[in-house]
C-alpha cells in the first residue's frame, strides 16, 4: 500500500523537473509533447470519473473535449477577424473569459446529453452517447463559417495574466497546475457523499434504489462535472495546437480517451494520467518506425483488454490502487 504515495511523489517530481531537463538538452519538442500529454491526461481523468467510478460507459466524451476547444476557437476566431458571433457577441482572447466559458458550455452540453442518455443504461447508454457526440461532430463539420471539416487555425494562444502562454515553459507549468488541481478536486469528489452514491450506483443500483436513492440526479451532476473537466482540457488543447477541427469531436477521439483510461487503470484517477502519457508516447515512438503504427496498437490493445485488466497503474501500485 505504501507504494502508492511513493509513485505519486515520484511522478510529480518527474513532471516538475522535466522542463529543466528539456532546457538542458534544448529539447523543445519534448516540452510540447509533454504539455499535450498533460492535457490528454486531464481529459482521461474526467472520463475515469464516469467509467471508473460511475460505471457510465460513455463513448462520447470527445464531444465535451471538442466543444471546449471550439468555444475557445470560435471566440479567438471572432477576435482575430474583428467580427461578431451571431452578429451579437465580440470574440475574446482573454483566458479568464474564454476558459470558464468553455468549461461552462461543455458542462451544459454534458447536462443536456445526460438528460437524454441517462434515461437508459447498458448498451443503450454506450450507443446513445456515441450518437450524440457524433451529432455534434456533424454539426461542427457543417459550419462553413468556422472552416467546416478543416476547422479554425489560430494565430496565438490566449492572454493569461502574468503568464505568457506562448512561452512553452509557462504553458507547461500551467497545464501541470491545472491537472494537479483537477485530480485534487476529483479526489475530494469521489470521497464525498456524492461520490459514495455514484460508486454505490456502479456496484449495485438495485440496492441503492432500495435505500431510497434514485441515482439519476446524482449521475447527471457527475456527468456534468466530467463534461466540465473535458471542456477545460479541450480549450487547453486548442491553445496548445493553435488549431481546432471537428476531428476533436470524432468518436475515435472518444475511443482513444477510453483506451487511455483502461490502459492506465480504471477507477484510480492516477492511472488515466499514466495511460494518457503511455498511449501518446507509444504513438510517437511507433510513428518513428512505421506509418502503420495502428497495426501494432490494435492487437496490443486487444491483448490488454483480454488479459491485463488492471492497467499499468494497477501493476505499479498493486492492490491499493483502486478507488482513490
Amino acid at each position: 500500500m505504501a507504494r502508492k504515495p511513493l509513485i505519486i511523489f515520484l511522478g510529480l517530481a518527474i513532471l516538475l523537473l522535466l522542463p529543466i531537463y528539456a532546457a538542458a538538452t534544448n529539447d523543445l519538442y519534448l516540452l510540447s509533447l509533454s504539455s499535450r500529454m498533460l492535457i490528454y491526461a486531464l481529459a482521461a481523468v474526467s472520463l475515469d470519473l464516469l467509467i471508473g467510478y460511475g460505471g457510465m460507459i460513455s463513448l462520447g466524451h470527445a464531444a465535451f473535449f471538442g466543444l471546449g476547444a471550439y468555444v475557445g476557437g470560435i471566440l479567438a476566431f471572432h477576435y482575430q477577424e474583428f467580427s461578431l458571433f451571431f452578429g451579437l457577441l465580440p470574440g475574446s482572447n482573454q483566458a479568464l473569459i474564454v476558459w470558464p466559458l468553455a468549461v461552462l458550455i461543455s458542462a451544459l452540453a454534458a447536462a443536456v446529453f445526460g438528460l437524454i442518455s441517462l434515461r437508459t443504461s447498458g448498451a443503450y447508454f454506450i450507443m446513445i452517447t456515441l450518437a450524440l457526440a457524433q451529432m455534434l461532430f456533424f454539426l461542427f463539420t457543417s459550419f462553413s463559417t468556422y472552416g467546416g471539416e478543416d476547422g479554425i487555425s489560430l494565430w496565438q494562444r490566449n492572454d493569461f495574466p502574468y503568464l505568457d502562454l506562448d512561452n512553452r515553459y509557462h504553458f507547461y507549468y500551467l497545464c501541470l497546475g491545472l491537472l494537479v488541481g483537477f485530480v485534487g478536486l476529483c479526489q475530494r469528489l469521489v470521497n464525498s457523499r456524492l461520490g459514495m452514491v455514484i460508486r454505490a450506483s456502479k456496484q449495485n443500483e438495485r440496492r441503492l434504489r432500495a435505500l431510497g436513492i434514485n441515482p439519476l440526479p446524482y449521475r447527471l451532476v457527475w456527468l456534468t462535472i466530467a463534461g466540465a473537466g473535458a471542456g477545460l482540457a479541450g480549450v487547453l488543447l486548442m491553445n496548445h495546437s493553435h488549431y481546432v477541427s471537428p476531428a476533436l469531436l470524432h468518436w475515435t477521439q472518444s475511443g482513444e480517451l477510453m483506451v487511455m483510461v483502461i490502459l492506465g487503470g480504471l477507477g484510480t484517477l492516477y492511472g488515466p494520467i499514466l495511460g494518457a502519457m503511455s498511449l501518446l508516447l507509444l504513438e510517437e515512438w511507433l510513428n518513428q518506425y512505421t506509418e502503420h503504427w495502428q497495426l501494432v496498437l490494435g492487437p496490443l490493445l486487444l491483448l490488454v483488454v483480454l488479459f491485463a485488466r488492471r492497467g499499468l497503474y494497477g501493476l505499479l501500485a498493486g492492490r491499493g490502487a483502486r478507488d482513490g
Binding site: 460507459i57 475511443g255 477510453m258 483506451v259 483502461i262 496498437l297 490494435g298 496490443l300
Partner: peptide, 27 residues
Amino acid sequence: RLYQREHLDQVLATFAVIFTVNELTRI
C-alpha cells in the same frame, strides 16, 4: 471470448479490431 465480458471490454476489444482491420486495409 467477449460474450461473458462487460460491455466496456467488448467496446474496447472491438475498437481494437477496428484499428487493426483499418490498418491492414491501408496496407
